[in-house]
Design a protein around this nucleic acid. Structure first.
Length: 1089
RNA sequence: GCCCAGUUGGCGGAAUUGGUAGACGCGCUGGUCUCAAACACCAGUGAGAAAUCGUGCCGGUUCGACUCCGGCACUGGGUACCA
């Protein structure tokens, strides 16, 4: 009887389940090995043949490691929160939990049929409260942590509060650029809300106003990597930019570590490269260009109309400032001694330029100006009023004291100043919101700061470009240009993300009318606005070097801006076509950089820039903080409630915060997320509102590998013992599509948990390999336009008979055909099953066909496997027809694991035959036929050769070649008519990882009571492989011409002599004397003529 | 544009440090078995009549290159005004 795979596979799947064969303990004498698969999202479509590819490979590896004596952790679970179930719920009203459960049941059934060795006792589901309780718990840890740049680690937020209490937020690495400064004594005086707002700037999980990718159709925000080409990855709906209050994760704090630690892990180069690009570290320098002259409010058209101040050029203003400092009044000297050196707890400057004025004293942080009116000012009442008005208009408060009160009542003056300082925190101007003061240096000068990676090209700068959203745009724009700039900025801001991406090549921009001063040449450099500059990267401003930067080049050409070459390009470089961007060549036209190579010039330029104090070396990352909230129902509730507008996290004992029931899975009428529909009692302590957004899909999957180690622990997310034992994943097999999403986030959370001392590892997986995609092969039938007549592929352009033509309803043969996707399951070798097609869909019931050679031939095309293309092949069907072992072997046999390939079953019969042939080795008819006689030398050689190859192949993840090697081995043993136990027992073991069902059955029939799972993988005994002779290929000038066998004991010299005596050698020599004879022992003989 | 992967018979693919190119399987051809078909088994199968030629194309290193180096083309994937 032939091998009955249906019976045997069912039997062993049952056996494994009943005996919990693959249950793994967290303690063992054996070394540990952790094999992890990609976390599946249980979709309604079920598994297709592409999904198990990686699972089969990892299962083979896991089973191999067990045979090699390892304690193997090989778990499976479900990433069961997510959009599709929710979309389905919106359409049908069915609770996503129900859909999810059904889908999981179907997945499980499909997985079981393939015979995977998962430890199902460790199954996790991210949507189970006992799982998401810990996802919420980790969120709370993130909320309670900040990233300390000094220790380069996440720490509890308390250490930051301590810092604030003792040092304020001034100290260099703690201070965040652009944040208002406060001093030690200040922290405690802030209100709870103020403190909360400040801390949110540091927390690793934080709430902020962020530009988000808003997808109106999906009704939610999307992460950057969920948006492809301006539309949502799921569904393909348009996405727009929108400012929203959002929860985010401060992944940027880990940018450098995420980048650096890539070097230490054995992941595929393509994934590492994708992550490196996504993180996008670029080293360069910040550089400030002095703004001069500074336009007056009147010039830029935003100031009050009655402006009385003389139009002052910056230069003279600066001189006034310096002169004033030397000629202080007595009162000013007295006050200076009181306020200088932060004596009042605030940094106060004197004779400092503000806008076009010079303030006597100013505290920039608190935006407080202190004026001491001397005799001069008494004559200028009107002037002072105007000046105060302007200063207040741009966000300053001005307090005035007379010379007399300073001289005679300094205590009263001091008290007034302190009071003013303390009460003026962050007082924002109203009419000028969005146009803060220019960044000003010690001398009071104003600047535009740019970021560049090419400071060497500083002498090639021909203009400076600001992003349309840049704060300084309105400040530097002159009144003549105001209209054009305003229009441009409005258009640029309103362009949707999609338009911007589609229009990348369209160059747009506008001149502001102002200039900055070149820091070295002093020349005037025009300031432009252009949307090729991104507000969110660097400083939102660039120095444009058109000769050496492609984008600047295009911009300059488009607007006719002059260009200056500063790097000597190769001789044949054509600047009419391209800029020369390479970081190679010598500097020219560049003053002190002349003659240097680019790399040296960069160093030198940075040094000089830093020395001049106009900028400093700086690193920028492309990586953005990850938006963490989704305005959706089917996700983990964020464990946050709001008390008087202050976000607060729940206590651990209040977890899990369960997902509440809602009447509809839609946003509320007021546009709030679905959770706002929860009953009015869904409130913290019955009064405080919970956060309404839920966590994104990647929350649960960012730590699932840890939960498998200790899946049922209700005390902690993973016990210390479990994680100390299992450490991290030894082998992860997954698709490359998660390179910049999941695989980056899971690394981030791992590092964070490590910082907190909760886990001992800094990376989730030591080794990662990608499985390729299995693509679908779609089939097409060609319908003649406006008819129900289908024409066979190769008849479209051929002559039709009158009868055939009449089917098309056309008078003359002028066919227009529409290709229609046909279900691949009713097409065999491109031949359409016409009856099946007619009954496939109602509309094709009466379809007519124009055939070729009696058949209807379909067209085919390789596409993504998807339901809508009717090209999905389910593994169930293959298992039903050929068996699970056959599916496993065939998927591996298709080709290298990491390569994408279309699915076709053309070769599956070869694998099916192989299994039968293997079975026949052990059987004679219906009976087991195994002999205990000792094996012969050729039999042992066949086996051990295979053992050696299989070990090599598995350890190199070359599963396709090991299947070939099994075939070779079985062919050889069949040839040898081998039925020796000594051979067949080890053979069953080495094949067990690949074809576990048939191996178990053979093992059992050989008389073993236990599962083959924990047998011992045989060792390769080299002595059986030793050959006494080798059949040398004899080649002439490297081309093999014939073979000659020589004993391996012969020396090179012997062989050389022997070869020369051969008749065939003489024939190929054609009477010439060889120049050289190369003999490589056990390899080749090459004769050079 | 940039980054990554790939390109070998009719097809999927093999070739471990440079050493017999095309293993293994499919398909195809012929044969055995059968009334016939399927299954199974046997033989052949890169091209060419042959000399020879052949691993995307051009060049190089080497006694010898699918393999190493330089340049180019094409296919697939990722990514993008990131300064």
């Amino acid at each position: 009887m032939e091998y009955n795979f249906r019976e045997v596979e069912k039997k062993w799947q049952q056996y494994w389940k009943e005996n919990k064969t693959f249950k793994t303990e967290n303690k063992s004498e054996k070394p540990k090995y952790y094999v992890l698969d990609m976390f599946p999202y249980p979709s309604g479509a079920g598994l297709h043949v592409g999904h198990p590819l990686g699972y089969i490979a990892s299962d083979i590896f896991a089973r191999y490691k067990r045979l090699k004596g390892f304690n193997v952790l090989h778990p499976m679970g479900y990433d069961s929160f997510g959009l599709p179930a929710e979309q389905y719920a919106i359409q049908t009203g069915q609770h996503p939990e129900i859909t999810t459960k059904t889908n999981i049941a179907r997945y499980r059934e499909q997985l079981d049929k393939i015979g995977f060795s998962f430890d199902w006792d460790r199954e996790v589901r991210t949507s189970n409260p006992d799982y998401y309780k810990w996802t919420q718990w980790i969120f709370i840890q993130l909320f309670n942590s900040w990233y300390n740049p000094e220790t380069n680690k996440a720490e509890n937020i308390d250490t930051l509060i301590w810092e604030f209490e003792h040092y304020g937020n001034l100290r260099h690495p703690i201070h965040i650029e652009g944040q208002p400064v406060f001093y030690p004594n200040k922290w405690k005086s802030f209100s709870e809300k103020e403190q909360s707002d400040i801390l949110l700037n540091y927390r690793l999980a934080f709430l902020s106003d962020t530009m988000v990718n808003w997808c109106p159709q999906l009704g939610t925000v999307l992460a950057n990597e969920e948006v492809k080409d301006g539309v949502s990855e799921r569904g393909g709906y348009p996405v727009e930019r929108k400012l929203m209050k959002q929860w985010s994760m401060r992944i940027t704090a880990y940018a450098d570590r995420l980048l650096k630690d890539l070097d230490g892990i054995d992941w595929t180069e393509s994934i590492k490269e994708a992550q490196r690009n996504w993180i996008g570290k670029s080293e360069g320098t910040s550089l400030r260009f002095r703004l001069t002259p500074n336009p007056s409010p009147k010039e830029r058209g935003t100031g009050p109309g009655y402006q009385t101040a003389k139009k002052k050029m910056w230069g003279s203003l600066k001189e006034n400032s310096r002169a004033n400092r030397k000629t202080q009044t007595e009162a000013e000297e007295i006050l200076w001694e009181i306020v200088r050196d932060k004596k009042l707890g605030y940094k106060i400057r004197r004779q400092h330029s503000i806008d076009q004025f010079i303030a006597d004293f100013v505290c920039l942080e608190e935006k407080l100006i202190i004026e001491v009116d001397g005799e001069i000012h008494e004559h200028q009442q009107e002037y002072d009023e105007g000046r105060t008005y302007i200063l207040e208009d741009i966000g300053y408060r001005v307090i005035r004291f007379t010379n007399d009160s300073v001289k005679n009542n300094i205590d009263w003056v001091t008290k007034k100043i302190i009071k003013a300082l303390q009460s003026s925190l962050k007082q924002q101007s109203t009419s000028h919101a969005g146009t803060p003061l220019l960044w000003r240096g010690e001398g009071g000068e104003a600047f535009i700061e740019v970021f560049t990676t090419r400071p060497d090209t500083i002498f090639g700068v021909s203009f400076v470009t600001l992003a349309p959203e840049h704060d300084l745009v309105s400040v530097v724009t002159t009144s003549e240009n105001k209209k054009a700039v305003d229009e441009y900025v409005t258009t640029a801001k309103n362009r949707s993300e999609r338009e911007r991406q589609a229009d990348v090549k369209k160059i747009t921009g506008v001149f502001t009318g102002s200039y900055v001063e070149h820091p070295f040449t002093g020349k005037q450099v025009p300031i432009w606005v252009g949307d090729y500059v991104l507000a969110g990267y660097g400083t939102g401003a660039v120095m444009a070097v058109p000769m050496h930067d492609t984008r600047d080049f295009a911009f300059a050409n488009h607007f006719g801006i002059p260009k200056q070459m500063v790097i000597q390009p190769p001789v044949d470089w054509d600047f009419a076509l391209n800029s020369y961007d390479d970081k190679a060549g010598k500097l020219i036209n560049s003053d002190f950089l002349n003659g240097l190579e680019v790399k040296e010039a960069i160093k030198k330029a940075i040094a000089v820039i830093e020395e001049k104090g106009i900028g400093k070396g700086k690193t920028n990352f492309r990586l953005r903080d990850a938006i963490f909230g989704r305005q959706r129902y089917w996700g983990e509730p964020i464990p946050v409630y709001y008390e008087n507008g202050i976000p607060k996290v729940l206590n651990e004992n209040e977890l899990p915060l369960l997902l509440p029931e809602v009447d509809k899975y839609l946003p509320t009428e007021t546009g709030e997320p679905p959770l706002a529909r929860a009953s009015s009692s869904w409130k913290k302590d019955g009064k405080y509102e919970y956060e309404y957004s839920t966590m994104p899909g990647w929350a649960g999957s960012s730590w699932y590998y840890l939960r498998y180690m200790d899946a049922h622990n209700d005390k902690t997310f993973v016990s210390k013992e479990a994680v100390d034992y299992w450490q991290n994943v030894d082998l992860y097999i997954g698709g490359a599509e998660h390179a910049t999403g999941h695989l980056l986030y899971v690394r981030f959370w791992t590092k964070f948990l490590n910082d907190l001392g909760l886990i001992p590892v800094i990376e989730p997986a030591k080794k990662l390999i990608n499985q390729g995609m299995i693509q679908g092969v779609s089939a097409f039938a060609y319908r003649v336009k406006d008819t129900n007549c289908f024409i066979s592929k190769n008849r479209i352009d051929s002559f039709l008979s009158p009868e055939e033509l009449s089917l098309t309803g056309l008078k003359i043969q002028q066919l227009v055909v529409t290709p229609i996707h046909v279900d691949v399951n009713i097409v065999n070798n491109n031949v359409l099953n016409i009856d099946a097609f007619r009954s496939w869909r109602e509309e094709y019931k009466d379809a007519e066909f124009i055939l070729e050679e009696g058949k209807y031939i379909c067209g085919s095309e390789v596409e993504k496997m998807s339901k809508s293309k009717y090209n999905v092949v389910s593994p169930d069907l293959v298992v039903q027809q050929h068996g699970a072992d056959c599916l496993r072997l065939y998927e591996m046999f298709l080709g290298p694991l990491e390569l994408s390939k279309p699915w076709n079953t053309n070769g599956i019969s070869g694998v099916s035959n192989f299994i039968r042939k293997l079975w026949r080795l052990y059987h004679n008819g219906d009976n087991l036929n195994v002999s205990d006689e000792p094996a012969t030398k050729p039999e042992l050689k066949a086996l051990h050769k295979t053992i050696k190859k299989i070990i090599f192949d598995i350890e190199n993840f070359s599963f396709n070649t090991s299947v070939s090697n099994f075939m070779i081995c079985v062919n050889e043993l069949t040839e040898l008519k081998c039925n020796k136990r000594e051979i067949l027992e080890p053979l069953a073991i080495i094949i067990a990882p690949y074809a576990p069902h048939v191996a178990e059955e053979l093992w059992n029939q050989l008389g073993h009571k236990d599962s083959i799972t924990y047998a011992t993988f045989p060792e390769c005994k080299e002595e059986y492989l030793i050959e006494s002779a080798f059949n040398y290929p004899v080649s002439f000038n490297g081309k093999t011409r014939f073979f000659q066998e020589y004993d391996l004991s012969l020396t090179k010299e012997d062989i050389e002599k022997e070869v020369m005596t051969l008749e065939q050698t003489q024939k190929y020599l054609e009477g010439k004397t060889p120049k050289k004879i190369i003999v490589v022992h056990n390899k080749i003989v090459n004769i050079v003529i």
